[in-house]
Design a protein around this nucleic acid. Structure first.
Lengths: 186, 186
DNA sequence: ACAGTATCTTGTCATCGACAAGATGTCCAC
DNA sequence: GTGGACATCTTGTCGATGACAAGATACTGT
């Protein structure tokens, strides 16, 4: 039996969760557009129109995924210690939640005006800024540089553009890369 | 009259180009999946099945877009001079060709095994490596760091994630950011 | 128990991607 | 210059999809 199927009658129990989870799984396999609402509904064992009640439309599902992603990223960043840690937390989140990460930075895919989403996105952004301020490296441009290098390495890793020689641990490989931003400093 | 419409009889003249251009335009407006083959066909003034002859399927169109993108990136990088220049050339290409850039780094969207595409992708990769070697900054990890920071800044800019205060010139803003990778060096 | 509401179903429609078969134009061998 | 091979494009079709509407069913509080 699958992961759900436990308590399903006319009411699913937690369709919203089931759909989001199924979406994340599908996106990880075949990209942000490689799935259909009807397929997710079938996987969850509900009718083809059931998801619409919770999400409105297809973009609504991706809005939920993106919001969940921003919350996860914020939580990940909040635990980081020093400068390198912060960047590696970013990389760790992105590479362990590639589906979320891919959706988060493609606003055309979701309802970017959604209040829940905006809140989550702002929180993630704040976590990054706050974390960087604590490290003392708050010269102008440094925040953007840190964000850029962490985001770039993450995006390249997730897209599969990086050479296989880097191994399978994105955080270990990322450490060498992010450290370059600190060369010649204290 | 639109850009084409000039010489169209039963044979379009250059349907392949027209479709790729229309695709790039559509992608820039509504993302890598915000368009349909039939819409492009209508725009080009041909029947709904005409594009299939040139590209096979929808992914085929995106394969052509990605290949064109990699060729453009390679050309852009080949002209760069010093280290900063190289990174800024990357940023300049990405931000002036956002549609190409977005597609290039989403391999699920196209036929990544396509020979023409592979050749173009390899050329772009080589242009980056060669350009960096010439700058003398070829310590281990430095290539990845440069690629990451340039790619990250580009991706963030294209996705609209960066604050509006940065202005409208991505290359000018990028210069300040990429320069951080060189602080404390020669 | 009953009303109100949230959740889910069934049915439908326009659109889409893919495929097949046929029509039309082009171009080269002879 | 013509006949046929080939590339290009059209028309027609099919199953799948997203969105919407209307109705059925379960839950919730009073």
């Amino acid at each position: 039996m699958s992961t759900r199927e436990a308590v399903i009658g006319y009411h699913h129990g937690d369709l919203r969760r089931a759909i989001v989870d199924a979406a994340v799984e599908s996106i990880a396999e075949s990209g942000p557009s490689g799935w259909s609402l009807r397929e997710l509904a079938r996987r969850a064992g509900v009718s083809h129109a059931a998801p619409a009640h919770h999400f409105g439309d297809k973009a609504g599902v991706l809005t939920a995924v993106a919001a969940e992603g921003f919350r996860g990223l914020a939580a990940s960043l909040a635990q980081a210690g020093d400068f390198l840690d912060l960047g590696l937390a970013y990389v760790a989140f992105a590479t362990s939640h590639p589906a979320h990460f891919q959706v988060m930075f493609q606003p055309e895919l979701y309802h970017s005006g959604d209040p829940d989403l905006s809140t989550a996105a702002d929180a993630a952004r704040a976590a990054l800024t706050d974390g960087l301020r604590e490290t003392g490296l708050d010269e102008p441009g440094m925040e953007l540089a840190a964000w850029s290098i962490a985001h770039g390495f993450s995006a390249l890793w997730v897209s599969g553009a990086l050479p296989a020689e880097l191994g399978k641990d994105p955080v270990a490989a990322g450490r060498e890369v992010l450290a370059r931003l600190l060369d010649g400093r204290r």
